[in-house]
């Protein structure tokens, strides 16, 4: 972990715990968390992203970025079906996982008396999209590995 502030470290731990819990109880896939980063490229070589806004005591945008085969593996495991393309089922599943992850963050922050509300999930897909957050916002980017490959959980946030 490089130059991670106290807040960033706390955020990274909360995200990792929430992701591990969701994968263990809802998706039943083994998950390995990589080293959290506080910066990274906008283009992570992914084909599908599910994202959801959070607001309240701080403002954020939470994203889950997956290469196509990883998105299909996660969605398929959650839905109990084989998925062979990033179709509406895959996007629904990834949107729901992102919603659950945001719910996990909301719950963990509520225990610290930090209030958050969730917006609704959106999925973005395609071969050539890029995502950008406002200049000056903070970022926690955590790589996770499953058998099908690597995906990323990305929290962009502002404490002001």
């Amino acid at each position: 972990m490089v130059d991670m502030s106290g807040a960033a470290l706390e955020f990274a731990q909360i995200i990792t715990t929430a992701a591990e819990e969701i994968f263990a109880t809802m998706i039943f896939l083994d998950l390995t968390a990589g080293t959290p980063l506080t910066e990274g490229k906008d283009d992570l070589g992914c084909y599908v992203t599910a994202m959801i806004g959070l607001s309240g005591d701080f403002n954020a945008m939470l994203g889950v970025h997956c290469p196509a085969r990883v998105g299909m593996a996660i969605g398929g495991a959650m839905l109990g079906m084989d998925l062979d393309e990033v179709d509406a089922d895959t996007k629904d599943a990834l949107g729901e996982i992102t919603n659950m992850l945001a719910g996990g963050l909301k719950e963990a922050f509520a225990e610290k008396e930090v209030g958050l509300h969730l917006a609704i999930p959106t999925t973005i897909s395609g071969n050539s999209y890029k995502l950008s957050a406002p200049s000056g916002s903070n970022r926690i980017l955590i790589p996770f590995d499953i058998d099908a490959g690597r995906f990323y959980v990305d929290l962009k946030y502002s404490l002001t």
Partner: peptide, 10 residues
């Protein structure tokens, strides 16, 4: 309340 904005392009 409003979340942080995000932009998508491509």
């Amino acid at each position: 309340k409003l979340s942080m904005p995000s932009t998508v392009y491509g």
